[in-house]
Design a protein around this nucleic acid. Structure first.
Lengths: 212, 212
DNA sequence: TGTACATCAGTGAACGCGCGTTCACTGATGTAC
DNA sequence: TGTACATCAGTGAACGCGCGTTCACTGATGTAC
């Protein structure tokens, strides 16, 4: 009966079929339960229903697994941000608001990915592919700032890089302090989304960028 | 010769004298080397030159040790912030700029304390004393925003709580992403302090709060 | 002041446990002919 | 199409290691009289 899929674990017989993916999924679950520090190789193998030696066929060590999870996180993140920005349609203001909401939404709905990306102690310089994916997600934010700056006459435009870093820091600060999906969130008397939206509006106003 | 201080470890004879403090110091060193997740009870005992069972006389478990470190961190943090704010002297603008610099300076010069406070997975609700110390440091920021808001005529004043949360998130985002003192810092083409100062000025401008 | 005693803050040995890692192995799959 | 073989992706047993935790203990300190 080895050609039947095992109903419990979804694997067929001796070979797993897609252990790489299964390990990543298992790791995400573990991170969400115990934080990025609580992820162990042995645990991930167990959760994937496989012997402790099996993960070595796919990842050199725990760090490489974490880097792959972060890579996947940044890819999803970039996708969500790009969808939210929607090429600045219907207008750049709305786009940026949606971008902010998407940032917070990601932190809340994917706390494991978020933790792997920003709080796992990963040194991006050691993982070029992950770093490149991180850059791509930042690029969405930067492009949107470029578009907003372009609503002002040339010569009065604020530097888009600076804008992007400011808004990133603001979004990240709010996500990390008030918007996370776990027990370490700090309580505030309003939704994190509202807090961020207000901050961005005040900030843009300070730059002289106003909704037309 | 047991009454002589041991020259190596600074302890005298059988009794340590100040093990509690020594454990905290040792833990800080370990956190700075391996991150908050890398802190173990056994390691801290070893670094303090004491047997593995000794720490149990002072802390129930690793979590309680971490909470004490965070407590100490918030106390120092509140002190530095209050010094920087300096009761709004010579003026509230300068005070807030100094506050921002102090936030980043703390994150950079005390990465271990910063990590224990914000990235150790500590649930503040479980540690009331630590939570209270955290509130006290936020209170400095809030008071400074109160003073800045008060430069505007009553009726046009922005809510100080919102301002404080915005500036906290901004400072924290910049510190966490670009200003930390370890290898996980992301590179940007300007000092974190300049980035923060620019953001705060734009933000205040957006609120109509300008240097007089 | 001296002495007896209680208390405190350590020791060090012991235990169970889970992790990381290696190894020879074996079942399953793909492919050449 | 069938068969032989190479390769791949797992197994499971084994190992050393460090952690957390408990325990009876003991040296040092403080205090009552």
């Amino acid at each position: 009966m080895t050609w039947h899929k095992d109903r419990q674990s979804g694997r067929k017989g001796y070979h797993h079929g897609n252990l790489r993916e299964a390990l990543i999924d298992a790791a995400l679950k573990l991170i969400s339960e115990k934080g990025p520090g609580g992820l162990t190789f042995a645990d991930a193998a167990r959760a994937a229903g496989v012997s402790g030696a099996a993960p070595y066929r796919h990842f050199r060590d725990r760090d490489e697994l974490m880097a792959h999870i972060a890579l996947r996180g940044y890819e999803q993140f970039a996708g969500k941000l790009a969808d939210a920005w929607n090429d600045g349609q219907p207008d750049a203001f709305t786009g940026l608001e949606n971008l902010g909401k998407a940032y917070l939404g990601f932190a809340r709905s994917e706390p494991s990915l978020f933790a792997a990306m920003f709080e796992s102690g990963l040194v991006l310089a050691d993982h070029p592919k992950t770093a490149a994916a991180a850059d791509r997600s930042f690029e969405v934010l930067r492009a949107s700032c470029e578009a907003l700056a372009a609503t002002k006459p040339a010569g009065e435009r604020p530097p888009a890089l600076m804008m992007a870093l400011h808004i990133w820091a603001l979004s990240h600060g709010i996500a990390a302090l008030f918007g996370r999906g776990d027990a370490t969130r700090r309580a505030i008397p309003m939704p994190a989304e509202d807090l961020l939206e207000a901050a961005v509006l005040v900030y843009l106003d300070g730059l002289g960028i106003v909704r037309t």
